[in-house]
Simulated assay, not measured.
Amino acid sequence: LVHCALEGSFVYLSFMGNIADSDSFIASLWKEYGKADARWVNFDPTIVSVEILTVVLDGCLALVLMYAIVKEKYYRHFIQITLCVCELYGGWMTFSPEWLMGSPNLNTNNWLYFWVYLVFFNSVWVLIPGLLLWQSWVELKKMYPKGTSLGKKFQ
Results as ranks from 00 to 15, higher is better:
residue 123 S to I: 11
residue 107 N to Y: 03
residue 118 L to K: 08
residue 147 G to V: 03
residue 133 L to R: 11
residue 106 L to H: 13
residue 150 L to Q: 14
residue 110 N to I: 00
residue 121 F to V: 08
residue 126 V to T: 01
residue 133 L to T: 10
residue 138 V to W: 10
residue 145 P to G: 05
residue 125 W to I: 06
residue 83 L to K: 00
residue 140 L to P: 05
residue 148 T to Y: 14
residue 130 G to K: 01
residue 147 G to K: 15
residue 96 S to M: 11
residue 136 S to M: 11
residue 127 L to C: 14
residue 152 K to T: 10
residue 137 W to P: 07
residue 120 F to C: 04
residue 144 Y to C: 12
residue 103 S to M: 11
residue 120 F to T: 09
residue 105 N to T: 14
residue 84 C to L: 03
residue 99 W to F: 13
residue 150 L to N: 12
residue 126 V to H: 06
residue 79 I to A: 05
residue 139 E to N: 13
residue 144 Y to E: 13
residue 99 W to A: 12
residue 112 L to M: 12
residue 140 L to E: 07
residue 85 V to I: 14
residue 151 G to L: 15
residue 107 N to I: 03
residue 94 T to N: 11
residue 92 W to N: 05
residue 115 W to N: 13
residue 133 L to I: 08
residue 108 T to L: 15
residue 85 V to Y: 03
residue 142 K to I: 09
residue 88 L to S: 04
residue 149 S to W: 02
residue 117 Y to M: 05
residue 110 N to E: 02
residue 91 G to A: 06
residue 109 N to M: 14
residue 102 G to A: 02
residue 132 L to C: 11
residue 134 W to K: 14
residue 90 G to W: 04
residue 110 N to D: 01
residue 92 W to E: 14
residue 149 S to R: 15
residue 122 N to F: 03
residue 148 T to W: 12
residue 129 P to D: 07
residue 88 L to H: 05
residue 97 P to M: 10
residue 147 G to D: 00
residue 142 K to F: 07
residue 91 G to F: 01
residue 97 P to K: 09
residue 86 C to M: 07
residue 99 W to Q: 13
residue 89 Y to R: 11
residue 141 K to T: 15
residue 105 N to S: 11
residue 96 S to Q: 12
residue 79 I to Q: 03
residue 93 M to P: 08
residue 93 M to F: 13
residue 122 N to K: 03
residue 121 F to H: 12
residue 107 N to Q: 00
residue 138 V to K: 12
residue 151 G to C: 11
residue 120 F to I: 02
residue 79 I to C: 01
residue 87 E to Q: 13
residue 104 P to Y: 02
residue 110 N to M: 00
residue 91 G to R: 00
residue 134 W to A: 15
residue 113 Y to W: 04
residue 115 W to Q: 02
residue 112 L to G: 04
residue 83 L to R: 01
residue 110 N to R: 09
residue 83 L to C: 12
residue 91 G to D: 04
residue 117 Y to H: 04
residue 134 W to Y: 14
residue 82 T to D: 09
residue 98 E to S: 06
residue 90 G to Y: 00
residue 113 Y to P: 01
residue 130 G to A: 08
residue 87 E to N: 10
residue 103 S to T: 09
residue 115 W to D: 00
residue 116 V to W: 01
residue 152 K to W: 06
residue 151 G to F: 15
residue 93 M to N: 15
residue 82 T to A: 14
residue 103 S to G: 08
residue 149 S to I: 07
residue 112 L to A: 15
residue 135 Q to G: 10
residue 133 L to A: 07
residue 99 W to G: 10
residue 98 E to F: 03
residue 141 K to C: 06
residue 133 L to M: 13
residue 94 T to K: 09
residue 135 Q to I: 06
residue 139 E to C: 11
residue 142 K to L: 14
residue 131 L to G: 04
residue 113 Y to D: 02
residue 93 M to D: 11
residue 131 L to T: 07
residue 110 N to S: 10
residue 99 W to H: 10
residue 98 E to I: 00
residue 89 Y to V: 15
residue 126 V to G: 13
residue 97 P to G: 06
residue 111 W to Q: 15
residue 117 Y to K: 06
residue 83 L to N: 05
residue 129 P to H: 02
residue 121 F to R: 10
residue 106 L to P: 00
residue 140 L to W: 06
residue 84 C to W: 00
residue 139 E to S: 15
residue 124 V to S: 09
residue 143 M to C: 12
residue 86 C to I: 08
residue 142 K to T: 08
residue 144 Y to M: 13
residue 102 G to R: 02
